[in-house]
């Protein structure tokens, strides 16, 4: 798409050290799960790259016997998704649970038969959330999320759907960095090679929907977010202005998804305003 930016993206991302990142993320999962009294993690295993990487990290952190991969196909899901998810589970020796979401999703849309594919996609994502949180209670396992920094920053996820989790181990890694992690961890080649997709409808593609490749998107996000450069500075460095502005706008408009719900301030101490404690309070 933009060759010059492509080259710059690799420079901007620098010599990312996947071994060091894995070391930190494995410890992060282990410590943040166990210190609140849990031993197990449960995650949605889609057959895609991000959940494969999170499965690897969780299996390393908690042990394969404490890692549950949940396969939740819908009737329009790519059949390869199931076999790829199973491939990862077999590779790691983690437990899998298959929960077809087709009957639940279709039952709901009998009430709204004209719903468009975005609504259907959101309901699928939230149905999977429902399954994961139910199994979380059943298995006494924390839900380990699979969202990465790129999609969190541009809002390419369903709030209270695939974004719902106890933690996001990949939340500070761009998609291009997740790919490097996948290679380092030995995620099967076929999973690493397939085009990224939310798989909510046939033929869906992240990069087509976003209108930008992950290489270019990550390069722009690194400049804007990590390096705090202005849109003007990026344009001076050769990026296409309309593209940079569109990315900056995606970040701003999706910010609500990254925050807890708004709460009014009417008392002397209010949640979200001046009642400030870390989640790890007391642990």
């Amino acid at each position: 798409m933009m060759e010059a930016s492509d080259i710059r993206s690799r420079q901007a991302l620098g010599a990312f050290n996947p071994a060091l990142a894995v070391e930190l993320l494995v410890r992060f999962i282990r410590e943040e799960v166990t210190k609140v009294g849990f031993q197990r993690g449960v995650l949605g295993l889609s057959g895609g790259l991000d959940s494969a990487v999170v499965a690897h990290l969780t299996a390393r952190a908690l042990g394969p016997e404490n890692t549950y991969g949940v396969l939740m196909p819908y009737r329009t899901s790519d059949p390869a998704s199931i076999s790829d998810a199973q491939l990862v589970a077999d590779q790691l020796g983690i437990r899998t649970i298959l929960v077809e979401i087709t009957p639940m999703v279709d039952a709901y849309f009998e009430r709204f038969p004209d719903a468009d594919r975005v609504r259907r996609g959101n309901v699928m994502a939230r149905m999977r959330m429902l399954v994961l949180y139910d199994l979380s209670a059943a298995l006494r396992a924390l839900v380990i999320g699979t969202s990465n920094k790129t999609e969190l920053l541009v809002g390419y996820g369903t709030i209270y759907g695939d974004m719902a989790a106890a933690m996001w181990p990949l939340g500070d890694l761009y998609k291009t960095e997740v790919r490097q992690l996948a290679e380092y961890l030995g995620v099967p080649e076929r999973i690493r090679q397939k085009p990224p997709t939310a798989d909510l409808w046939v033929g869906q593609s992240d990069e087509e929907e976003l209108g930008i490749t992950y290489e270019v998107l990550d390069a722009i996000l690194v400049e804007l977010v990590d390096r705090r450069l202005t849109v003007e500075a990026l344009v001076r460095n050769g990026y296409e202005e309309a593209l940079v502005r569109r990315v900056a706008e995606m970040v701003r408009r999706s910010h609500f998804k990254r925050r807890t719900p708004l709460c009014p301030k009417i008392s002397s101490r209010s949640i979200g305003h001046d009642f400030r404690y870390k989640r790890d309070w007391g642990s």
Partner: peptide, 11 residues
């Protein structure tokens, strides 16, 4: 706090 995963072996 540790940050920066671009080094050879260390944060």
């Amino acid at each position: 706090p540790g940050r920066g995963v671009r080094g050879e072996t260390k944060l």
